[in-house]
C-alpha cells in the first residue's frame, strides 16, 4: 500500500509524539497511574481506538511489525481499518502472527499466544477510570486514587456476591497494579486478566477521548480484585473450538441457524490458525450442549 503524501511518518507530528512519549514514560514509572495528556483529534472517530492509535503512532518506528486485533481477530472491520491506517501513514510491515509482531494494538482481547520480552501491547481504552461506575466525578476519583481509597470497589464486589452469589463482572474486571493503583484493564474479558500478571511484554494503554495514558511495565504484578472466600475466577467452556479443538482459549459463540443452534470458535483468529496449521482439528459442527451449564465455579 502506498504511503500517503503530505503527512508526517505515522500521522502525528514529532512534537506531539514526544509529548505522548513523555506521558508514557511517566506512566511506566508509575504503573497503573492515569497520566493526563494532550490527546489530538484523529482522523478516526472517538470510540474507534483514537487513544491506542496515538500511542502506537508515537512509539512505532519504520522497522516495527504491526499487528492489530479487535475482539481477538485480525480480520474484523475496525482492525482492518486501523492496520490500513498505519500501512498508509507509516508504511510499516504488518502481520497477523502474534509471534512476528513487535507492536500489537488491541481492542477487547489479549492474544492467547504468550507475549515475549521486547513486544509492546497497546490497548484501546474507552473509559480509563475503574472507579467511574461508583463515582462519576473525575475530581473525586483522582482524590480516591491519591488516597488509595479503594474500599468502594470491594463493597461493589461484595454487593454482587450478596445479590447474585458471585461477582457479576465478566469484562473490564478491575485489577490492582504493583500493589498500588486500581486500574481498568480495558474491556477485555476477565479470562484475559491473568495474562497481564508479570507479562514479559510492555503494556501501554491509551484513552483518546478521556485524554489519559497508563502503563504496566514488563514483569509487573497485576492482581484481579477478589476476596479470600470468593477468589477471582475466569470463564470456562464445556465445549471446545469447533475449528481447532482448543479447550484453553476464549471462545466466541456463533449462531448457526434460527433453531437455537450454535457453535463455539476461538476469538483469537491467529491462535486458531496456528493450531489448525499444526494439525489440530475441532469437531467442526454445532455445539450439542443443550442447556449451557458451563464450568465449575
Amino acid at each position: 500500500m502506498s504511503v500517503v503524501r503530505g503527512y508526517n511518518f505515522a500521522y502525528l507530528d514529532e512534537q506531539t509524539k514526544r509529548m505522548i512519549r513523555r506521558g508514557l514514560l511517566k506512566a511506566v514509572a508509575v504503573p497503573g497511574y492515569q497520566v493526563p495528556f494532550g490527546s489530538r483529534e484523529m482522523p478516526l472517530p472517538y470510540g474507534w481506538g483514537t487513544g491506542g492509535i496515538q500511542v502506537t503512532a508515537s512509539v512505532i518506528g519504520p522497522d516495527d511489525v504491526l499487528k492489530v486485533i479487535d475482539q481477538g481477530a485480525d480480520d474484523t472491520t475496525n482492525a482492518v481499518s486501523i492496520r490500513r491506517f498505519f500501512a498508509r501513514v507509516a508504511g510499516v510491515a504488518t502481520t497477523e502472527r502474534t509471534t512476528e509482531a513487535t507492536l500489537i494494538q488491541t481492542r477487547h482481547r489479549i492474544p492467547e499466544t504468550p507475549l515475549a520480552e521486547g513486544q509492546i501491547l497497546v490497548y484501546q481504552v474507552p473509559i480509563p477510570e475503574p472507579l467511574r461506575w461508583v463515582e462519576p466525578r473525575e475530581t473525586e476519583t483522582r482524590k480516591m486514587h491519591a488516597l488509595t481509597e479503594y474500599g468502594v470497589m470491594h463493597v461493589k464486589l461484595y454487593e454482587d456476591i450478596t445479590r447474585h452469589g458471585r461477582i457479576a463482572t465478566s469484562f473490564n474486571y478491575p485489577v490492582l497494579v504493583n500493589g498500588r493503583y486500581v486500574m481498568s484493564p480495558s474491556p477485555i474479558p476477565k479470562f484475559d486478566n491473568p495474562k497481564m500478571h508479570r507479562m514479559p511484554a510492555l503494556q501501554l494503554f491509551g484513552a483518546g477521548r478521556e485524554k489519559r495514558l497508563y502503563a504496566v511495565p514488563p514483569h509487573t504484578r497485576v492482581e484481579s480484585l477478589d476476596f479470600e472466600d470468593h477468589p477471582f475466577e475466569v470463564q470456562t467452556w464445556d465445549d471446545v473450538c469447533a475449528l481447532c479443538g482448543a479447550d484453553d482459549s476464549y471462545l466466541d459463540e456463533v449462531i448457526v441457524d434460527d433453531q437455537g443452534g450454535r457453535m463455539f470458535v476461538c476469538s483469537d483468529s491467529d491462535y486458531c490458525r496456528q493450531r489448525r496449521d499444526a494439525g489440530h482439528a475441532g469437531h467442526g459442527g454445532p455445539s450439542d450442549l443443550e442447556t449451557v451449564e458451563r464450568g465449575t465455579p
Binding site: P45, Y46, G47, W48, T50, D70, Q71, G72, T76, T77, N78, R107, H108, R109, P126, A168, S170, F171, N172, P187, I188, P189, K190, F191, R209, Q235, Y250, L251, D252, E253, S267, V292, E293, R294
Partner: peptide
C-alpha cells in the same frame, strides 16, 4: 464518536455477559 462506537463489534464482552447471565 463514543455514542456510535457501540455499533463496533463487542462479541467478546457480550460472550462474557451471556455466560454470566446463563
Amino acid at each position: 464518536g463514543f455514542v456510535q462506537h457501540i455499533k463496533l463489534p463487542h462479541y467478546v464482552d457480550f460472550q462474557g455477559e451471556l455466560d454470566l447471565v446463563r
